[in-house]
Design a protein around this nucleic acid. Structure first.
Lengths: 216, 216
DNA sequence: TTCATTTTAAAACGATCGTTTTAATCAAAC
DNA sequence: GTTTGATTAAAACGATCGTTTTAAAATGAA
């Protein structure tokens, strides 16, 4: 979907409001006031609050997913389609996402928090949106991760993907906790530092999960 | 705070509503209808919606934190106060929480989801509540983890605690994803399986983070 | 029974919600 | 200049929100 200037202006205001209030708590009036447009503009330009949220997410995520897929395809091609080191796969999942989200809005990480919060509100349209976002890339990355881990039992992959998702969504929603728990030591805009540590955490976690002994 | 029968009845109804709608999205009328009490009962018995949420959280969390502190103190005492294996510390953080939350309400994990969702909504009273919950146990467990890791640089601890928290809150909010990503293979009520894998994931992640090379 | 207190009930409070309607304004094509 | 279509503006829609008020009912002590 091609967006007009007004639509982008509204989306940028919406990011702030959704980030701070969540989807349910966000106010159409607050968004339109911030964007400097009339209350009716959201319904005129998007159709509804739901549709606005959806467009906001896709506007950011689609280019990120394109980058992810290209990087994965290139990495596999350069490796004769053999399994990649796990860290490389996880890096391709994490880095384009956080790099885009942290760099493009320098302060407060609005879209990142907005999307994270929306995703966990469990509305039915959010589930559909999540499906839309992930259906293209999910199978490719699950397959790459499974190969990198030596194709363990599928429940190990399931646990791992679940925890990996918790980490990424949690980081997006609660990025600012880093400043709190570090007493201000960690720079919230240090993408490389964040990604390096997050990739290390997730990769080691995935390997450990794949090696947990079955109980029976 | 000692709770009356009516208050507990309201709390149990509130868990369902908060779990499904989040704090902002939850309706006082829906909660009181479900509890079979009058609309005014929440303000009469608790004072406000905020106070209800607070009591709901403390009602569940305080006993869990007591168990955690006892287990940690006992483990340290049995180990001559030497550093514990990391897995043991993480297990004490995770297992009492998930065991209590999954066992006591067999279906849909209402309180778990309610608290997880509330915690990420970033209202100011939520931050105060989080402080209340954690101020007693946080320093003890951070210290134990740091010792188990051989006291690395503090920013490694900060990254680790942040990711650990993302995993635990994420698991609480999004527990049902396990059923989805596993295609129904994983039993959502299998606490031991969940905790075993989550502890392995977090512990390995923490170790890996503590070993990430500084850039400079 | 009487009285004081606690708890419930019903109704209304003011505020805000997302959306729709109606009319005015603008832009470009003819 | 006129007309057509797209966009903006202002106002109102019905609904729901958390909370408060007022009064009735229940409870227990004297």
């Amino acid at each position: 979907m091609k967006l007009t200037e007004t639509q982008i202006k509204i989306i940028e205001a919406a990011e702030i409001e959704f980030a701070e209030m969540g989807y349910a708590g966000a106010s159409i009036r607050e968004i339109t006031n911030r964007a400097g447009v009339n209350i009716a503009a959201i319904n005129y330009h998007f159709g509804s609050k739901e549709a606005l949220f959806k467009e906001m997410v896709l506007y950011h995520i689609e280019p990120i997913n394109q980058v992810r897929m290209t990087l994965l395809a290139d990495a596999l091609a350069n490796n004769d389609s053999k399994p990649l080191p796990l860290e490389e796969v996880v890096d391709i999942i994490v880095r384009p996402l956080l790099a885009a989200l942290i760099s493009e809005s320098c302060n407060d990480f609005h879209f990142m928090r907005a999307m994270g919060k929306g995703m966990v509100e469990e509305r039915s349209f959010m589930k559909d949106l999540q499906q839309d976002m992930l259906k293209e890339i999910m199978p490719k990355f699950i397959s790459a991760i499974s190969n990198s881990l030596g194709n363990p039992q599928f429940d190990k992959i399931a646990y791992g993907i679940h925890f990996l998702t918790c980490c990424i969504i949690g980081e997006m929603m609660q990025h600012t906790r880093l400043a709190m728990v570090s007493g201000g030591t960690i720079d919230l805009n240090d993408i490389d530092g964040l990604v390096d540590h997050l990739v290390a955490f997730i990769s080691a976690g995935l390997k450990a999960v794949s090696e947990v002994k079955p109980i029976n």
